[in-house]
Amino acid sequence: MPEFRHRHAVLLAHAAGTQIVTFVLRPTMSYRAIELDVPPAWLGVLGASFALAPLLLALPAGHAADRYGERRMAVAGALFLTAAAIAFTTIGHTVAGLVAAGILLGTGHLGSVIAQQALVANTTERGRHDTAFGHYTFAASLGQAAGPLLIAAFGGQAAIPDTGSIFAASCGLSLLLLALSALLPNHPTGRAEADGGDLRALLRLPGLAHALLTSCVVLAAVDITLAYLPALGAELGLTASAVGLLLTLRGLASMTSRFFLGRLARAVGRRRLLVVSTLGAAAGMLLTPVPMPLWLLAALLVVVGFGLGVGQPLTMSWLAESAPEGMRGRAMSLRLVGNRTGQLFIPGAAGLMAAGLGTGGVLFVTAITLGWAGIAARRLPVDP
């Protein structure tokens, strides 16, 4: 038991550390681009450089995690994150250098996340995946919240922080993550077992399409909320501090639902919890653009955040228990491909469809899409 707790603590620390490094470097990359007077259109290119690796390399990375073990994949991911931090420091004074560093960052993040999710899937007893993935995503959310604090520490009252110092500090953080990677356990399946599996076996899993759909729509809804809530606040006359409070409440609500996910799933049932939470988030987002008192808007954002926090860990848990032995790394990577595809296309599609309706229209379309995903989740098997 003490050894299990030690390994569990190392895994959670690794998950939080990966997100800290990523959520320090990604915004700082944008600040550096602003320093270089990069045209706004190029900011999208920089963002796409991070998403490119998961789309192209996710399935091979999942196969490698299954075959060679999670620790080796985590070490490889940390090495790429370290290389990204060094690249930002040394060649990040040009647009080409920022793009190259962004690709390294996306690759390192991919390797680390695949290793973590495969490790949770392979080392958790059947029936406890909901709790395990809830705690895992809670730690990741904690890292995502802590990362920007480093930017604030270096930024002070300036509009643009000291990007050079942040990049240098990120090198040290990446090296710490590399040390943590070496402490993770390893569960390679070997050539025979890993090669004996077939991706088509995953694609034939009952309910797979609905699980991937729900996962990618929920993640896209989180991104849209982060991007459009400040714009909605400006339309409603809210202060920047009020919008920051709303985003904080949304994030805290998501972390709460993830921390207690195991108990909620046991009390309500996994499929019912996924459906109700997704539909609840859709209903809350649908009402968000309506003018109302700030306290009521805050309560709605708590509902939205709580519901959006459930989708990711529950679909991970479902995939972990559904995937054949020796293919769980590939199952997690398949989910990641779906997520990144949704992040690339759903926000753009929502913006195009609601171009004439303003920010409220974007949130309306997102809420409808989220409701559709919640209804689709009813077709998931009750248990894998």
Rank of each mutant, 00 (worst) to 15 (best):
A76V: 10
Q116T: 13
R71P: 08
F364V: 05
F80I: 04
L119R: 13
A101C: 09
P2R: 10
L286E: 00
T189G: 12
G348K: 02
V113T: 11
A140H: 13
M29K: 01
T137E: 15
I166A: 06
G164W: 03
G233F: 01
G280I: 05
V95K: 08
S254W: 01
A355D: 01
G197I: 00
C171H: 10
T124D: 11
A168D: 10
L287E: 04
F167V: 09
G77I: 05
S317E: 09
R335M: 12
S241V: 08
T163S: 11
G111Y: 11
T89F: 15
A33S: 01
A373C: 03
D383N: 11
Q144T: 14
F23G: 04
F88C: 07
E3L: 10
P291L: 02
L232P: 00
L334P: 05
F259V: 00
D162H: 14
R271T: 07
A194I: 15
L205S: 08
L247Q: 00
A83I: 06
T131I: 00
A158G: 13
F364N: 00
L203S: 01
R340V: 15
T22K: 01
N339A: 04
A152S: 15
P148R: 01
A349M: 00
T18V: 08
P185C: 15
A153S: 14
G102I: 08
T214Y: 00
L119A: 13
A121G: 12
L236G: 01
S141L: 14
A211G: 09
L252C: 05
L213C: 10
I91H: 09
L202H: 06
R330W: 12
L370I: 00
V302D: 10
I224G: 06
L98R: 07
L245S: 07
P313E: 14
A41S: 08
L104S: 12
T359L: 03
A159I: 11
